[in-house]
Amino acid sequence: MTPGGSPERYELVVPDGWWAIDLDPGRREANVAALVEQQWRGIDDAPLLKAQAREELVRRAEEAARVGGRQLFLSVGTLAGVPLSASLLVSTVPLATPGELTELAESRREAGLDVGHVALPAGPALRTRWREASVEGPDQPTTTCLDLHVPVPSEPRVLLLQFRTPMEPLADALVDVFDAIAGTLRWSSVPGRSGRR
């Protein structure tokens, strides 16, 4: 628990092949550096590409932190030699009113998105799935998006889980993985274990 007694600390289990980046400014750079070193281990003849990969990951992590992100999980695994591109951003979002989630559900439903409520071990959650066209052009892959808004117990906030994958042929299977990850979410009262994998 936090010093004020808020149960906002959480535990979340991700599959092997996913990497966690803590978005706290004091840990962000070290987590990105460790990921880049792992991914480029044994490749010593491409320092420019390695530096570019690191810069891109730092930029992405900084953007995630600016929107309230606490952790960014990236899939670095492969299937039959093909990288499984997927991500999860975990954020804390304030709720202005008790009915804000109901209003969000209604507006997303009106926009034609797949909206529903699910019962997670961490509590009831608003679940929304949709597909998003790339802003880089029609020839770029469509992104499958899955958001889960999980109210923080006794607090006017939600923990927002934002899953994304551009792998359209595997989207349904990856959404099953996303739902399974969300199903591991637990509130923790153990100090220092927020976001423990």
Rank of each mutant, 00 (worst) to 15 (best):
A30P: 02
E100N: 02
A171V: 08
A105H: 04
L160T: 04
L104F: 10
L84Y: 03
T165I: 09
P25Q: 04
L35T: 08
T143A: 12
R164P: 00
A119R: 12
P7Q: 09
S91H: 06
I43D: 07
E63W: 14
A119I: 00
A33N: 10
R157I: 06
R70N: 07
L113E: 15
S91L: 13
V36G: 11
V152C: 01
S134T: 06
E100P: 03
P151G: 05
W187P: 03
L12W: 06
S6L: 13
P138S: 12
T78I: 00
L160C: 06
T97Q: 06
P151M: 01
S87T: 10
M167S: 14
V150T: 00
S188A: 08
R197Y: 06
P169R: 08
T128D: 04
P121M: 06
V82P: 04
V152A: 01
L161K: 09
P191W: 04
V14W: 09
A180C: 03
V14Y: 06
W19N: 06
L72Q: 03
R127Q: 11
E106I: 11
Q140I: 06
E55W: 07
V14G: 07
A86T: 05
V90L: 01
P121F: 04
L101K: 00
Q38C: 05
V118D: 00
P47E: 00
S154E: 15
R164T: 11
L113R: 15
Q39H: 07
P7L: 07
W40K: 02
L185M: 07
A53P: 03
G192M: 02
N31V: 00
L95C: 03
R186D: 00
A30G: 03
A30K: 14
A171F: 02
W19G: 02
W187E: 03
V67G: 02
M1E: 14
A133D: 07
L101M: 03
L12C: 05
L104S: 05
W40T: 14
S107A: 13
G77Y: 02
L148M: 13
P83I: 01
S91R: 15
A133N: 11
T184G: 02
D114N: 13
T2I: 07
V190Q: 12
L159R: 15
S6G: 14
L148V: 06
F178E: 08
A64Y: 03
S154D: 15
E110Y: 11
P166W: 03
V175D: 04
R66L: 11
S6I: 13
L12K: 05
Q71F: 14
E62T: 14
T143L: 08
P151Q: 07
D24A: 15
E136N: 13
P153V: 01
V177F: 05
L126P: 11
A20M: 09
F73E: 00
V13L: 13
V67L: 11
P191R: 10
L72V: 01
S91M: 13
G5P: 08
V150K: 01
S75E: 01
S154R: 14
D172S: 12
